[in-house]
């Protein structure tokens, strides 16, 4: 289905984008207002249908490789979100349809969802990279900046030519980890190391710490406030999502001091198996 078909079926208004972008093929759809769910279950090439109109919707679309974002129930993205969509070249539409009707109309016309079982990670291409290391400050409690480090990292990874499947996994984990710092800590730092063999993300924050890591790792367990939830986070998917995407994941936390995450991604899984 082309984006133009989606526009027609939903009688949607295009808020950003070009005529040429309306010819894009859309492979699947993901509808959610919780960005962790989108990060966990969408597959690149999808259209994101959402009622979440803040900048996190566009950052999530960018990180998951969405080809377009459609806001439902007549919602329009705020200025910051629209600006980012233009910068990232993601077409943005708005429809008066409710989420349920929008999904129903697109499904009826042949667009597919992505189910849990189908959502397997494609294997990575083997390439060589130059080593690279950089540190980024994360401002705690600043929701509107939240995710900006991860989208910057995505741009850098694309520039150095890391395989797109690995970029998706690394930036999804980075984004979840970054949002945890934003939501819970005063400040934090993400250090990114890329070697020819792996990507290593190290996150350190000055936050409240996690009293029971086992509990925090359980899917659905959340200490989020209503504000975090209304912003599309805090569904208790963050840490499990990081673990799911990583090849190795370690977490260290001290109550009252902070939390440190070590997240590793192998760049040459195929080569390693041969050795």
């Amino acid at each position: 289905m082309k984006l133009r078909d989606i526009q027609r079926l939903l009688q949607a208004e295009m808020l950003s984008g070009t005529e040429i972008q309306l010819e894009k093929d859309i492979a699947s759809a993901c509808s959610s207002d919780l960005m962790s769910d989108v990060l966990a279950f969408s597959r690149s090439g999808h259209v994101l249908l959402t009622g979440l109109a803040n900048v996190q919707s566009i950052r999530t679309a960018n990180i998951t490789g969405a080809k377009a974002v459609v806001y439902v129930r007549g919602k329009k993205p705020d200025a910051e979100a629209l600006e980012l969509a233009k910068l990232k070249d993601i077409p943005v539409l708005t429809t008066r349809c409710m989420m349920y009707e929008a999904c129903g109309l697109l499904y009826q016309n042949g667009l597919l969802g992505v189910s849990l079982l189908e959502n397997v990670q494609p294997s990575a291409e083997v390439r060589d990279y130059n080593s690279f290391s950089r540190s980024f400050e994360i401002a705690g409690r600043n929701f509107s900046r939240g995710g900006s480090v991860s989208t910057t990292i995505k741009d850098i990874f694309e520039d150095i030519g890391i395989d797109s499947a690995i970029i998706r996994r690394t930036t999804t984990a980075a984004y979840e980890a970054e949002m945890n710092v934003v939501m819970y800590a005063e400040r934090g730092e993400m250090i990114v190391h890329v070697t020819p063999d792996l990507v290593h993300l190290q996150l350190r924050d000055e936050g409240p710490g996690i009293p029971d890591i086992g509990l925090a790792m359980q899917e659905g367990y959340s200490t989020a406030t209503p504000e975090m939830r209304e912003r599309g986070f805090g569904a208790g998917m963050g840490l499990p999502n990081i673990k799911k995407n990583a090849d190795r994941f370690e977490i260290f936390s001290e109550v009252g001091k902070g939390t440190r995450l070590e997240i590793y991604f192998d760049l040459h899984p195929v080569r390693k198996n041969e050795a």
Binding site: A29, C103, L106, Y107
Partner: peptide, 14 residues
């Protein structure tokens, strides 16, 4: 359901 929100909405709509 194991279905996504999109798919279950679509099926119910139909």
């Amino acid at each position: 359901t194991s279905e996504s929100a999109f798919a279950i909405s679509g099926k119910l709509f139909n």
